[in-house]
Design a protein around this nucleic acid. Structure first.
Lengths: 167, 167
DNA sequence: TCACTATAGTTGAGCACTCAAGATCAGAGG
DNA sequence: CCTCTGATCTTGAGTGCTCAACTATAGTGA
């Protein structure tokens, strides 16, 4: 009983090209940041989200959401960033379980130092390769994917543990 | 002197949507394979490449290229896959530096067991979200990116160490 | 007041990856 | 033959991630 909806040739080709493009692209981005700014891309994003927040401060949980990070991952990351002197954690007074993360001046400086090289890399690996129409298409495709993936069930089949409305 | 070609709003939005879509998408793919087949996506790809090769056998270096893996990464990965009994390494007789990697019957079986769930996931996270026109557009965009990134200089600026023709 | 449940965040173990360095061998040139 | 360059593949250390388990506090309802 093979109900699998296999990929046809066109889909297969698309998936592999998509995979390859992604690997190559993010490898470049990651390497550039690691070499010139001594931080992985995930950390860069955390610094960006903090820099955009009022008082450069966010609750850990909000920061996790906006930087597309799991709680655990963020905890580990912020521990490292704190060690580097780029972020500070302070206790939250209204909710004593919580914690604030604040971007320090040193962190802001590190971000500003890293930004030009990073942006240049993003442009050179992505936008320089595409026509304006393709950029627009990529935008629409990405938005469609995000809409489709956000809040969608993580496990299409199986794993409907204690979710009565599943299935 | 700020020559940085910053991203305009449209580019910024596109980049962030692209990033978000990628994170969400590959997180699903990775999780599904890890949970249902006990292997990361990179290992799955290695098994696929081997399964498509004559005699299910490839030189390590070719396997590294086709699976978009660094030599080091492949060495570590194949060591693990060998431990699992899914791949075998044998010495190459014509080039005694080299090594062959062969997909075992157990490896083929593991791959066949993993494939339906993986393909179903790929379909559900990617193709189900897109119109046929968008799939075609994504294909063209991906191919353009791959063409642009393959054999392009890794470090646009700097790092022209011993490459006399750089610059 | 007293559970009970949910939320916020951390921690440690295990694993995959990167980087740099090394061991081994092939091929080319003197 | 012998050296030199380059290719093949491996190894070990360091790092960031995931997962599961944990602590601590908030909120809810009897």
């Amino acid at each position: 009983m093979d109900h699998t909806r296999w990929l046809d040739d066109h889909e297969q080709e698309t998936w592999r090209a998509f995979l390859t493009a992604n690997r190559l692209l993010f490898e470049r981005v990651e390497r550039q940041l690691q070499n010139e700014a001594r931080m992985p891309h995930a950390y860069y994003e955390i610094l960006v989200r903090l820099s955009e927040a009022p008082d450069r401060t966010l609750r850990m949980s909000r920061l996790a959401d906006t930087s597309l990070s799991s709680r655990s991952r963020l905890s580990h990351a912020v521990a490292r960033l704190e060690q580097a002197g780029w972020v500070e954690r302070t206790a939250c007074e209204t909710d004593r379980r919580g914690a604030w993360a604040r971007l320090t001046d040193a962190g802001q400086a590190a971000l500003e130092a890293a930004a030009p090289g990073h942006v240049e890399t993003v442009r050179s690996v992505l936008f320089d390769a595409l026509t304006p129409a393709q950029v627009t298409a990529l935008n629409e495709i990405s938005v469609a994917l995000v809409d489709h993936l956000v809040d969608a069930p993580v496990w299409p089949a199986e794993n409907d543990r204690d979710c009565p409305e599943a299935g």
